[in-house]
C-alpha cells in the first residue's frame, strides 16, 4: 500500500526518516532504510538537514523507490529559487517520487557553510501552492506542462510554540498551508501529550491529517540540549528524571516512545518517528505499541 493509500484508508500511519550522509557513500543509509522498510508507510529523506551540506534528497529518494520504499521527498526553500524548485519537483516525479514535504528550511548560518547566500525565493506556503499548480498541469507562472505530476503534498507544524504570539502564528500559517494544498502534517517532536492534546483541540475541524512527531530520546544530555536550543521542543522534567535514573537507558527511551505513540493513537492520524541513528530500534518500538 502506498503512503497516500495508507493515509486515505484512515489507518494510523507510521513514517520514519533517513538523513543522507556527507558524501557519495550510501551503504549505511540504505541499510537503515531496509531495517524499517516493511514496518513503516513511508520514509522521509531530509534535504540538507540543519543546513549541513549532504548528499541530495532527490537522488536518495530515487534509490529508495528502486528498493520498493515509498519516500517522502523533503524540499526546503533555502537553497533553490523557484526555477530550480519546480524543475526538481518535475524531476522527482519522473524518478518515482510521489510524496513531497514542503519546508522553509533552516538558515545557512546554522550549518557548515555559513557564508553561503541563502535563497528563500519562495516560502513553505508558496511552495505548497506551486506543488498544487504543478499537479494541476501548469507551472507557477501559468505555463502548461507536458505531463503533470500528482504529488501528495505535506507540510510541518510546530505544536509546541512557547508563547501566545508564536502559537497563533503557527496556527495561522497552518491554515494557510492547508489552503495552499497540504494534505498531511508532520509535527515537531512531542513529549508532552497534554499540551499536544490541547493543540489538537485548537485545530479541530481543520481538514487535514496530522502525524505526531516522535524523536527518540537518546540521552539526558540530548533532552537538555533540545530544551535549550530546539524551537518548540520541550521535554518535561519527569521524563528527564526517568531517563536519568534508568539503568538500561535504551530500554527506557524505547518505553517513552511507545507510551507517546500509544497516547497519540487517540489524538491524531499517525506518527512520524525521527530515530536519529537508532533506526534499528524502530521495529521493536512498533512491536511494543501493538501489544
Amino acid at each position: 500500500m502506498s503512503f497516500r493509500e495508507a493515509l486515505e484508508s484512515g489507518k494510523f500511519v507510521v513514517t520514519a526518516e533517513v538523513g543522507p550522509d556527507k558524501g557519495t557513500d550510501i551503504e549505511h543509509l540504505l541499510k537503515d532504510a531496509d531495517i524499517v522498510k516493511n514496518r513503516v508507510d513511508a520514509i522521509n529523506v531530509t534535504d540538507l538537514q540543519s543546513s549541513v551540506m549532504r548528499l541530495g534528497s532527490m537522488a536518495v529518494c530515487h534509490l529508495l523507490v528502486d528498493r520498493g520504499i515509498d519516500p517522502i521527498f523533503q524540499v526546503t526553500c533555502r537553497d533553490r529559487n523557484r526555477l530550480a524548485l519546480q524543475s526538481d519537483l518535475l524531476s522527482a516525479w519522473v524518478l518515482g517520487v510521489r510524496n513531497v514535504l514542503a519546508l522553509t528550511g533552516d538558515h545557512p548560518t546554522l550549518g557548515d557553510h555559513p557564508q553561503a547566500k541563502p535563497v528563500f525565493d519562495l516560502d513553505s506556503v508558496t511552495l505548497l501552492e506551486v506543488i498544487r499548480k504543478l499537479n494541476s498541469g501548469s507551472d507557477m507562472a501559468g505555463n502548461e506542462l507536458r505531463g503533470a505530476p500528482e504529488f501528495l503534498p505535506g507540510a510541518v507544524v510546530n505544536p509546541g510554540a512557547d508563547n501566545e504570539a508564536a502559537l497563533e502564528l503557527q496556527i495561522m500559517k497552518m491554515e494557510k498551508k492547508i489552503e495552499a494544498g497540504a494534505r498531511f502534517f508532520q509535527t515537531q517532536g512531542v513529549y508532552d501529550l497534554d499540551a499536544f492534546e490541547k493543540f489538537m483541540k485548537r485545530i479541530e475541524g481543520f481538514h487535514t491529517k496530522v502525524l505526531g512527531g516522535i524523536i527518540l530520546l537518546k540521552s539526558v544530555g540530548m533532552a537538555r540540549y533540545m530544551n535549550r536550543n530546539v524551537a518548540g521542543v520541550f521535554v518535561p522534567e519527569t521524563l528527564i528524571q526517568e531517563l536519568k535514573t534508568a539503568e538500561d537507558k535504551a530500554r527506557v527511551s524505547i518505553n517513552i516512545a511507545v507510551r507517546l505513540i500509544k497516547g497519540m493513537k487517540d489524538l491524531c492520524d499517525g506518527v512520524h518517528i525521527m530515530a536519529l541513528g537508532w533506526e534499528s530500534k524502530i521495529p521493536s518500538i512498533l512491536d511494543a505499541v501493538k501489544e
Binding site: 548560518t109 557564508q115 553561503a116 547566500k117 541563502p118
Partner: peptide, 12 residues
C-alpha cells in the same frame, strides 16, 4: 575567491 555573503545581509 568565493564570496562570503553573510555580511551582505544574507546572514540575517
Amino acid at each position: 575567491p568565493v564570496k562570503d555573503w553573510s555580511p551582505a545581509g544574507h546572514g540575517g
